[in-house]
Simulated assay, not measured.
Amino acid sequence: MWRTIHVEKLRGETTIPVYVYSEELENMTVREFRRRLDRFGPREDYILIYRGIVLEDHKKLRDYGITHEYTVHRLDRLPGRGLMGRFLKEKHLQEATSTLKLLQVPFQDTSLHKDSSQIDIGFAAQVTLNQLKSSKNISERQRLEIRVDCKKLLIALLEKLLKKAPVHHTLVRSMQCLDPRRMAECKELCVSQMRRMLHILVGAKHVNEAMCDDILREFREFCDLAALQPKFREFDPKNTRVDTLLHETMGTKPSFSKVWDVVKILLVLSHGQASVERGFSINKELIVENQREMSLVAQRLIVDHVRSVGGITKVEITKELLLSAAGARQKYHGYLEDEKKKKERQAVDLKRKALTDDLDDLKKKRARMDTHTHTHTPDSSISTFQKPSR
């Protein structure tokens, strides 16, 4: 028999009925319920709330008392919505049901803005303004001007944030295909996203276009394999790393070697210039006694820049570059001096720790000797050998 659980957006604009069998509902976890709910639309970052309590993925619905015809609330966690909500009208934000739509909201358009008196400038600022107004230190006009200035600041802040937001890039948005849960459930969508990423990587000369057909074939086969394994469908990013899982299932198999090379490139993007662990750390393979990680990072930055401008002959010799090169030796000596001082401090700390440990050992030995002496006094020994009186 079918059972229904209603999922309602927190603002109440949409209600989605989720149907499950009565036998499933008895032991269904919140994570399984999320997967069922994700079939009704694109996977977004959200939390589920019931009676003011945020539902935890590993718990079962019955742990919260959720059963047939109950309603669970869903709250989307979209970046930027909080700042936009301070000065934009609510109806325009409700239409932004995904991260991409939120980025496309024309928040500079004054026709979408709230009235100046309704702009949210924050609790503390609001209290201060009210105090200044009640004490007649500022006029109503000045009060509104402060609110308008706050709105200008919020708009400028949003412009800066969204300009640097990585989700603007097609490559970043398409990286959803590396989500193990998507691989197991949405094969064709993942293949389409992988194809888009390959177009970008080929254009950047990171991938040979002659290899793309083989890469897509291997990726399709890997998605088929993922659909058969529970650890992909039940993947929890809070407890398991994506690179760990993909290295174990993809990186160690020769049949997926070509797509694994592409996946390594994509996974390194989220780490910036940091070392990437779990089986494909290039830094770990290259670091030797006479070469430190800082040197490797610097070399990578130089190589990436040379590639981006199209070759060593096209590198622009600027004044900043010349000054940096002239001061390189001095910076290196400064680095060596800092390392020497660091080692000296470590040696002093180790010596102090060794002395402290020796002192603690002596105190413990003295305590044991005092205890032994107290339990074996001469009086007690004499009384032990006295004959009992008749």
Rank of each mutant, 00 (worst) to 15 (best):
Asp214Gln: 15
Asp149Thr: 08
Glu320Ala: 14
Gln104Thr: 13
Ser275Met: 04
Leu301Asn: 06
Trp260Gly: 04
Leu286Asp: 07
Ser383His: 12
Leu269Trp: 15
Leu245Asp: 09
Ala210Trp: 03
Asp338His: 10
Arg366Phe: 06
Arg241Gln: 06
Leu225Phe: 15
Arg292Gly: 06
Val276Gln: 07
Lys253Ala: 08
Ile302Gln: 12
Lys163His: 11
Gly272Asp: 08
Val167His: 14
Val242Tyr: 03
Gly251Cys: 03
Leu301Trp: 04
Leu37Lys: 12
Glu339Met: 07
Glu159Phe: 00
Arg77Ser: 01
Glu285Val: 04
Gln131Asn: 14
Ser111Glu: 13
Ala165Met: 11
His6Leu: 13
Leu153Gln: 09
Thr110Met: 04
Gln118Asn: 05
Pro378Leu: 09
Ala156Trp: 06
Arg329Asn: 09
Lys152Arg: 13
Asp38Ile: 00
Glu289Trp: 09
Arg36His: 06
Asp149Ile: 00
Arg195Ile: 00
Ala210Glu: 12
Thr71Val: 03
Leu55Gln: 09
Gln229Pro: 00
Leu323Pro: 01
Met369Phe: 11
His333Asn: 08
Val202Ala: 03
Val268Trp: 07
His206Lys: 12
Ser295Ile: 00
Ala325Arg: 11
Gly80Trp: 00
Glu320Pro: 05
Arg390Gln: 08
Arg368Met: 14
Ile121Lys: 09
His58Tyr: 12
Thr97Ile: 05
Glu209Gly: 01
Ser98Glu: 10
Lys152His: 15
Pro230Lys: 03
Lys353Phe: 04
Ile121Tyr: 08
Gly311Ser: 06
Lys264Thr: 03
Glu23Pro: 03
Cys223Phe: 00
Ser98Trp: 05
Gly203Pro: 05
Phe107Glu: 03
Gly311Pro: 04
His113Ser: 08
Val30Ala: 01
Lys314Gln: 11
Asp379Lys: 14
Arg86Cys: 05
Ile265Glu: 13
Ala96Gly: 02
Met194Val: 09
Asp360Met: 12
Arg34His: 03
Glu13Asp: 13
Ile16Leu: 02
Thr99Ser: 06
Arg182Ser: 04
Thr14Ile: 01
Gln193Asp: 15
Met84Trp: 02
Glu234Ala: 02
Glu285Lys: 10
Ser174Thr: 09
Thr29Arg: 07
Tyr19Phe: 13
Arg43Thr: 10
Arg77Ile: 05
Gly203Asn: 14
Gly80Ser: 01
Leu100Val: 08
Tyr46His: 02
Tyr335Lys: 12
Leu78Glu: 12
Asn290Thr: 06
Leu161Glu: 09
Arg173Cys: 05
Glu209Pro: 02
Leu171Val: 12
Ala124Leu: 10
Lys353Leu: 10
